[in-house]
Amino acid sequence: MTAPTDPPAAPKPTRIAPIVTLDAKSFWEAADQEKFIGQKCGDCGKFTFPPRPMCPHCHSLNRQDVELSGKGTVHAWTIPRHPHPFGFRESPIVAVIQLAEGIRFVSNVVGVGYDEIRQDMEVEVCFEPTMNNHKVPVFRPRSK
C-alpha cells in the first residue's frame, strides 16, 4: 500500500514492451540506452534489417551493431482505429520509416496531429518508454 505522504508518481507507461528474440537482443538493449542501432556486415559493409545471424549478401557471420543516423522518411503509414490497439490511450500513427541507411523500420510517428502526417515527411528518432522499464525508438518531425 502507498503511504499518503508519497509524491504522486508519473503515469506508468502502458505501451507493450518489445518481444526480444536472441537475434534482436542487442538492438533492444541499445534502445533501452536511447541508442538506435542497426546491423552492418563486418565484411561487406551492407546494412540489413530485420537483424539476422548471417549477412545475406556475403554470408559473413561478422555482424556489427553500429549507431544509425536516426534520420528517415515516412514511407507508409496508418492509424489503427478498431480494435483499439492495446497499450495506447489514443490511436498511434504507425509508420514504415525509410532510414537514411537504406533499411526500413516499423515505428510510430509522434508529435504530429492525425491531419499533419504526410507521405515521405522527414523524421528523426526519439524514444518512448514501455511497460517493464524498456524503451523503443519512435520518430518525430525532423528539426530544421
Partner: peptide, 28 residues
C-alpha cells in the same frame, strides 16, 4: 510473417493494421 514482432510495440497488432501498412504506399 517473420517480422511481426517488430510491429507489436507500435500498436500494429492486427492483420488489418499490417495489411493497411503494406497497401498504403500503393494507394497513395
Amino acid at each position: 510473417t517473420g517480422s511481426l514482432l517488430w510491429c507489436v510495440p507500435y500498436g500494429a497488432m492486427t492483420p488489418a493494421s499490417w495489411g493497411a501498412l503494406q497497401a498504403q504506399r500503393y494507394m497513395h
